[in-house]
């Protein structure tokens, strides 16, 4: 069952077309990621869905509601963490939670929520004195205080160190395991790959691909990369002739074989042994969403 449906969404700011005909649906209980470089239109798309920005064109249904027409009813049922937002500096964490819980009909237990987010020790700390990771967890707490069915996280881990990022990923997985649906944006391909059930890759306001991370890799960057060192001469021609091998590169005594055959490693090892070549330091690497993005757009996501 789709909890969120977007069709033909378009939003421009003057001459800048931020979102240009985007359509997707999010199923109940999944973690859905919108990934793309800076300025791709992720925030614009998300905030149109949340009812915070008015689209120029397109249809949006969230939990069966129209975000523009049914704003208050929708906001009662969704949780939102915004990329650009703040809590009052001098408000303490528990006060912020107490305040936000008063805005909703069915608030969660604030104490339990603080505990779950590891904020009990900082409950009396003013928001402005929190560390980056703590502040982000405080924002997650505000997003969960109304026991939402659907939660939006916009660049949740941007600016966090790897340790805090991992903690945050676990929190997002917890949220989903309670049966909530999560929609998040990120410009980190690794984050999308680790966290999301399905990923929409957004570039220049358009979705260029949408699938599971594994599906995207299979389709757009199916090559496995196998590399080893061997004392020359190495029968490069024999390796090139193997079934499914698309490319063989050598650089000094390091040889890299690219291919799509499911038994690439076995084939290469067998061929090398048969030719009597001694090889060492062999490892393989699967393509990642970074490679998918490169294939789709011809550039690195960080460019």
């Amino acid at each position: 069952m789709a909890v969120l449906e977007v069709a033909g969404l378009r939003k421009a700011y003057g001459p800048v077309v931020a979102v240009d005909g985007v359509s997707f649906a999010v199923e109940a209980g999944e973690i859905f990621g919108i990934v793309g470089p800076n300025g791709a239109g992720k925030t614009t798309a998300l905030e149109c869905v949340e009812g915070l920005r008015r689209p120029d064109a397109g249809q949006i249904r969230v939990l069966g509601l129209d975000p523009q027409a049914d704003g208050p009813a929708l906001r009662e049922r969704i949780g939102v963490q915004l990329q650009q937002a703040a809590l009052p500096d001098r408000l303490k964490v528990w006060e912020a939670l107490d305040l936000f819980s008063s805005f909703y009909l069915r608030p969660a237990d604030p104490k339990a929520l603080l505990d779950r987010l590891g904020l009990t020790a900082s409950a009396k700390t003013p928001v402005s004195k929190l560390s980056g990771g703590q502040r982000q967890r405080a924002h997650i707490a505000m997003a969960l205080i109304n026991q939402p069915e659907l939660v939006f996280f916009d660049e949740l881990t941007t600016g966090l160190d790897p340790q805090a990022r991992r903690v945050t990923w676990d929190l997002v997985r917890d949220v989903r395991s309670e049966g909530k649906t999560v929609v998040l944006t990120t410009h980190l391909m690794e984050e999308a790959e680790r966290l999301c059930d399905r990923v929409a890759i957004l570039d220049h306001g358009q979705i260029v691909a949408l699938d599971t991370p594994a599906g995207l890799v299979r389709r757009y960057a199916p090559e496995e990369r196998l590399s080893f060192t061997a004392t020359p001469p190495c029968p490069l021609q024999v390796l090139k002739a193997l079934d499914g091998v698309t490319k063989v590169e050598s650089e000094g005594d390091r040889i890299t074989v690219l291919g799509t055959h499911p038994q690439l490693v076995g084939q290469v090892v067998t061929a090398l042994t048969a030719s009597g070549v001694a090889f060492q330091d062999l490892h393989t690497a699967q393509a990642t969403l970074d490679d998918v993005f490169l294939t789709l757009t011809g550039r690195q996501i960080r460019d």
């Binding site: 949340e50 915070l52 208050p72 009662e76 915004l82 805005f103 909703y104 109304n146």
Partner: peptide, 17 residues
């Protein structure tokens, strides 16, 4: 300053009238 820092935006994402 509440508008500039985004406090008002955060309130607007709740059912607060």
């Amino acid at each position: 300053s509440r508008r500039e820092t985004g406090v008002l935006r955060r309130f607007r994402a709740t059912p607060l009238r």
